[in-house]
């Protein structure tokens, strides 16, 4: 007995049809989806779901043991945000973040401009020395100021030696701003540098040729052209400053509670999860707004 002859596999494909084209497009789309799906699923389970849980908690209530419960859900937690304590913290956080951004801009702009005036060889070396603090451990860099600002710290020792008496900057808002500026200055410098470097220096020369003074050529030519960098840098400094937690914990005192620390307190000690959750959400909304501004201002990537 012989096996039945197997018909030869069809070797020629058929002519194209709209159905085939659609099927091919569908297969292509399915392939893309399958490639995306591991990351997609991961982010849904471990990011979108947690975000949803926080959202849900921001509407929760507390029972008499202080535990979050989902009876009588409502906007109670959000209403609490208008209370003087929380409002003060919000304003203080805003103010310190703005101050930090302003100082970074003031120091960072001339610095970035200076970098662009150097020869490319020198510039690369100078940039590496900006990159090192940029990439190195943030916690450690903040901690270093403890050694300097404390009552026994280097600054206090110097003022004491000069006969000015001991000073303690540590645990004041100034120390927090100092730490934030120290931490985030590179984030101002790098985008600023990138945008100033792209400007044709002949434009400045053309301005000088057209009788602009140094200040005028800065105000009317250089600054407007570097605006994308200014906006990008400002947002990159402002946003994390607003939600800062580590810096105020290390360098700030009890009187300088900021938003980040307050939220953490709600979860770890005060155990008021609904208020903590609602504040987290408000903070995120501010960040989203800032991001939209960033993209509107022509920021090409995050």
């Amino acid at each position: 007995m012989t096996l039945a002859a197997v018909p030869p596999e069809e070797t020629t494909a058929g002519a194209a049809t709209p159905e085939f084209e659609r099927a091919a497009a569908r297969a292509e789309s399915r392939r893309g989806f399958l490639i995306a799906v591991p990351a997609y699923l991961y982010l849904i389970v471990f990011f979108a779901v947690p975000l949803g849980i926080v959202f849900a908690y921001s509407f929760a209530n507390r029972n008499r043991f202080g535990e979050a419960v989902f009876t009588n859900i409502g906007f109670d937690a959000y209403r609490r945000l208008a209370e003087p304590i929380v409002r003060d913290i919000l304003f203080r956080s805003l103010w310190l973040a703005l101050l930090t951004t302003g100082i970074c801009l003031l120091i960072g702009y001339p610095f970035s401009y200076y970098l662009t005036t150097r020869s490319s060889k020198v510039r690369n070396i100078l940039l590496v020395f900006v990159m090192i603090p940029f990439w190195s451990n943030f916690l450690v860099r903040n901690y270093a100021w403890r050694v300097i600002l404390g009552k026994d710290g280097v600054i206090s020792r110097i003022t004491d030696f000069l006969g000015l008496g001991e000073v303690e900057i540590l645990f004041t808002p100034s120390a927090v701003v100092l730490g934030l500026v120290y931490g985030f200055l590179p984030f101002m410098i790098l985008p600023l540098y990138a945008s100033i470097e792209r400007i044709e220096m002949s434009l400045i020369e053309a301005g000088r040729d057209l009788y602009a003074s140094g200040w005028q050529s800065f105000r009317r030519i250089l600054f407007p052209l570097s605006k994308p960098g200014v906006i990008a840098g400002s947002i990159l400094v402002f946003v994390p400053s607003l939600g800062a937690y580590v810096t105020p914990e290390i360098l700030g005192g009890a009187k300088t509670t900021l938003l980040g620390s307050y939220i953490v307190t709600q979860f770890l000690t005060a155990r008021n999860w609904p208020v903590g959750a609602s504040l987290s959400f408000v903070l995120m909304a501010v960040m989203l707004l800032a991001t939209i501004v960033y993209f509107r201002a022509g920021g090409r990537n995050l």
């Binding site: 020629t12 494909a13 058929g14 002519a15 194209a16 709209p18 091919a24």
Partner: peptide, 18 residues
Amino acid sequence: DFPTMGSLKIFGEEVGTL
């Protein structure tokens, strides 16, 4: 790119959907 329709042959062999 795949054609929306029609026949495409290389030396007589249909390849339009390959």
